[in-house]
Write a protein that binds this DNA or RNA. Structure first.
Lengths: 206, 206, 206, 206
DNA sequence: CATGAATGAGGGTTCATTCAT
DNA sequence: AATGAATGAACCCTCATTCAT
């Protein structure tokens, strides 16, 4: 009887109301597995990229492949889940820095530092964001939904304070910094932070 | 990324003495084939990326797959050959701009414009450079061998003229700009040139 | 590099002009393989049905799986190719019997005998025809395109000769007989020919 | 058809003494579950065939998969249970028709009508009976055990009354009619009843 | 007892690479 | 020298069946 495929992807644990990709009421073993899985996927993504074979992730987690498909019907669901925590933390840091730091520009600098940490620590994240493969669209969307508003607010504050020239679009900045972080670990001669510092310099009101 | 059957390639047509990947004494038909191949590969790389199936390139060129393997034993050899012309032109423009332009910094700006053209026109080039896949190492090497000295000279001249602050490493600049060019065509909201302008602003001596 | 599937199915050797699924101008080894493949598929279809794993057919033929996909992009292409000869022979017998036999009804009886041979010898054919799986639609189509006109002519002749009552639809008859042939070999107690004889009896003008 | 993990099943609920697959002394909830299950399975069988995934049936019934396995250790057990009622009714109609109808042949005709209803209404039944998959052997067995004697009695009566020619085997008739019912709903051009009428015509004494 | 999570064999498909023609 | 047929490893994904909870 027809094996006619179909795929809908529900990202079931991504409804925005929970705090990190693990459902509240879940059998203990299932939750344990999900955690093992996320940890394993994170490691594998760093080592072999976000396109690593499902088998490899399953093996690393010590579970069957089916378990991955159960928890994360599409690869994107897994990728999003893996990076959700990190993205969340970064997003939350924005407003806090704005209220704590001496000036909006300082807050912006510090937040971008965190943003770079996010991309640099998790090699796979930058790769996935950069990939034009449509299967990472949901990650893209989640990433921007969460972080672009934060960047917008920081840039607006700095612009209002007259510290930077207006006109830079938050999306462009995030994406540019994201791009600069690609391949940071391939080569000791390349340190994205130095370039990002220059970029921010270029942004300051003369 | 797993499908990495690794093969030590010699990039045989890249010995620096010839002018573009086509040996001087070659049967007419073989040369014709090479040219068809390079043209086809260039088109395919733009459309489907540098990881496009060999078959697709062969089909577009109207030759057999074996012919590709004969002329370009590894994928990297083909990629290098495809981009060699463009890289060469860009490299040669450096000294010329330095002697023509009003100031070293202006020369630098103009040269970077050309460099960006190179990466932006040829979607596949940026992709290949960015890829951490070891099979593109030869392209990487060729690219840097040829362009880094040019960038060095331009930066040194501008630094000596006191137009920019010293300390930026040419490699880092090239790579950064290369990264910024990634994905330029996915999204109309993202224009790498605006960011590169900011970067150069940040480089100027205050 | 997007793995986005697509499938078009060209049934390349089935253009109606050749006489049995093997192209005229074909490398010797390729033709040999195609023949091995058809033979192997025929055997496997009998033993394991037309849904047998591609791997199994490849193994039996002593070729790689890719070879099957090259020659027969879809399963249906293979199935059609396997049964094409037989269907063709059966179709051609119709007019001949009509001119040779003593009466149209006798011709009809004999032709149906051949038709039953076709379905009974090739266990897989009946199975495939019966399957509601859409992937066998091309087989269905080919089968009917070729045989329904033959049946129509025989029935019309017998009706005109007043030997059978009119009104039976050729499609219905073929399909019914096809159905009766299902499972003929599971059980010695069941002989479709006896029932088919009854059916033809029932068709005779009283 | 390969996925045949074969399992010797006992069709535990089919001991002939109970009235429909539900044990007499059973906890109320268990019985409720069984009924939900049978209803769900019947619906799914019609829609997706008797090879539908267990999950799908479980979901439709609103129970876990384990519950299905508990009540019906093998798929065949479930299939038998689903069709048991219908088969039973059909079997019981035989003697009644024989005593009510004007002649044995009329009784036979009417009974076969009911028999066709059975197969045509329940798409899955014909499919399962036809399948050569050994896992449906128990269904086969049950089906014949119950209905063949009925058919025998009707045929014998008609033969004794001189209405039909002798010699047709009841098994063959049932099976033939079963086969004719296959695919009745795929195609409006095909109506098994017309053919079955012909078959019975052919059976009449001249 | 019921649930449904986990397992993993099994089948489909692609495509780099080799090598007969 | 060119061709493109053949190979088969490597991926993907589904779902029957078991068994922890």
């Amino acid at each position: 009887m027809p094996r006619d495929h179909e795929k809908e992807s529900a990202v079931p644990t991504t409804d925005g109301s929970d705090t990190g990709g693990t459902a509240r009421h879940m059998r203990a073993d299932a939750r344990r597995n999900q955690e093992k899985l996320l940890a394993a996927a994170a490691e594998v993504f760093v080592g072999s990229g976000v396109d690593a074979p499902i088998r490899q992730i399953a093996a690393r987690a010590g579970v069957g492949m089916g378990t991955i498909y159960r928890h994360f019907p599409t690869r994107s669901d897994l990728v999003v889940a893996v990076f959700r925590h990190q993205i969340e933390e970064c997003a939350e840091a924005g407003p806090r820095l704005l209220s704590e730091a001496g000036s909006p520009f300082t807050a912006l600098q510090r937040w971008i530092d965190l943003f770079v940490d996010l991309l640099v620590t998790k090699h796979g994240l930058a790769q996935a964001l950069q990939s034009d493969n449509s299967r990472f669209a949901p990650l893209h969307a989640y990433f921007l939904d969460r972080l672009q508003p934060v960047a917008t607010r920081l840039l607006d504050a700095a612009a209002e304070a007259g510290e930077i020239r207006p006109g830079i679009h938050p999306y462009e900045l995030l994406r540019g910094i994201g791009n600069l972080c690609i391949g940071h670990d391939d080569d000791p001669r390349y340190d994205p932070r130095r370039l990002i510092t220059l970029l921010l310099q270029g942004l300051r009101r003369p």
